[in-house]
Design a protein around this nucleic acid. Structure first.
Lengths: 130, 130
DNA sequence: CAATTGCGATTACAACTGTAATCATAACCA
DNA sequence: TGGTTATGATTACAGTTGTAATCGCAATTG
């Protein structure tokens, strides 16, 4: 029986910026998160505190006490998040399948040479990988 | 000089259900939209009226008067919407490129046989199509 | 010990969403 | 013509999100 996978909480756009800071290095104090975000966003520290709190309530991050303050770490992996977001997106817009999305970008000539090469390599791999 | 493309307004999840009804056939009265949506959502008519109004204010739908009531049509195409949503999504999660997304699904073995075939066909086409 | 400072917690507040109910008004029916 | 309908318009209201300011308390410093 497969582990009952707990659902990935929804992470908003702003919250995801904080998560990225934690995914890139954990654990981190609120201040270090702020530094990591730097001027990617013109945020006050209190904004970041708010976001950390919301993520805590959602169980997307966890803390360990370090004296008077907290050190935050991501409680879900970036892969898990990518997956739930991607799945939601594909389901909503492309009937849950990858190919129609690729076809869409292809129709609009939005596939770069690099993308093309990468895709070719990928499906080549999959093909003979099994 | 390329036509100054007006930005696609953001369409919420619930609103997109209404848009789909209009994309599948336009123009339609509010009641016909409700019928088209049917029991896909357990919505009261007034909910649909609200959504139509919000979409109107965003200029995502337009109306023409038909006697006492309105007939609604989409003011943006589904392709435009798909594109702005997809671009936003890819930019946010996959650095704006398609290949990493496909790689992601591949890593999680979420590419069906059909997807594989379709992808192969697509890149084949692109390859010799130019 | 008192004043200051560093932090998490609480509160704020507007815009956007989901989901309606109610209001107003024009049209139709008796 | 007055009551009943059908509609669009207005109002409602809670939850989420973006973006903070402020409060309260523990620790540090003089």
């Amino acid at each position: 029986m497969k582990e009952a996978m707990k659902p990935i909480p929804h992470i908003s756009e702003a919250e995801s910026v904080v998560m990225e800071a934690l995914w890139s290095h954990s654990p981190r104090s609120a201040e270090e998160v702020a530094i990591a975000i730097g001027d990617e966003r013109a945020w006050q520290e209190s904004t970041i505190k708010t976001l950390l709190n919301r993520l805590l309530r959602k169980n997307a991050v966890k803390v360990l006490k370090d004296g008077r303050r907290y050190l935050y770490s991501a409680a879900i992996t970036r892969e898990q998040w990518l997956h739930s977001e991607s799945k939601g997106f594909l389901d909503r817009l492309f009937d849950g399948r990858v190919a129609p999305l690729v076809a869409h970008f292809s129709r609009h000539r939005k596939l770069s040479k690099a993308d093309l090469e990468e895709l070719k390599r990928l499906i080549g791999e999959l093909d003979d990988g099994k």
